[in-house]
């Protein structure tokens, strides 16, 4: 069973049985709000016209050293996406702060990771708001 990690700890994955569409499927046209799954090489520039049809997006991290998902999330937020945004795949607790600061709301991890890096290790990163040089720069100017 997957866990969703948020600032207040672990939660069951309410979307575990949800159907996530690929970008191609979405672009082919849908009739009700859908969930979208993006690979890290997705080009989101055309996505804004579909935003109304998207109830949630998850970005795939094939490996924790592949940081494209962080930029993709930031780009989605820059394009005006205000909905639910999650990261899934191989992410470690030490990346929680970067994920949140790039625009993700939550990180989805599998059972093995949740066992190896239990809730306390993720909660230790929940203070991500306090220590951001980028926010500090914008504040101090």
């Amino acid at each position: 069973m997957n866990r969703i990690v948020r600032d207040d700890g672990f939660h069951p994955d309410d979307l575990e049985h949800g159907e996530f569409l690929t970008l191609e499927r979405l672009e082919a046209g849908v009739e009700a709000p859908v969930l979208l799954q993006l690979e890290p090489d997705a080009d989101p520039s055309d996505l804004p016209r579909h935003f109304a049809w998207i109830s949630g997006i998850r970005i795939h991290f094939p490996n924790f050293t592949d940081g494209r998902g962080f930029s993709l999330a930031a780009r989605l937020r820059q394009l005006g996406y205000g909905g639910r945004l999650g990261a899934f795949g191989h992410l470690i607790a030490d990346q929680y702060s970067q994920a949140r600061r790039s625009g993700f709301d939550e990180v989805v991890i599998n059972e093995l990771m949740a066992a190896r890096q239990p809730e306390s290790q993720w909660l230790a990163k929940s203070g991500w708001r306090q220590r951001s040089y980028q926010a500090h720069i914008l504040r101090s100017a």
Partner: peptide, 16 residues
């Protein structure tokens, strides 16, 4: 120094 601050733990650019 400005670049040091900006690049330190920049959330997007830790896994280039």
């Amino acid at each position: 120094e400005l670049l040091r601050q900006w690049s330190t733990d920049h959330p997007e650019f830790q896994y280039l």
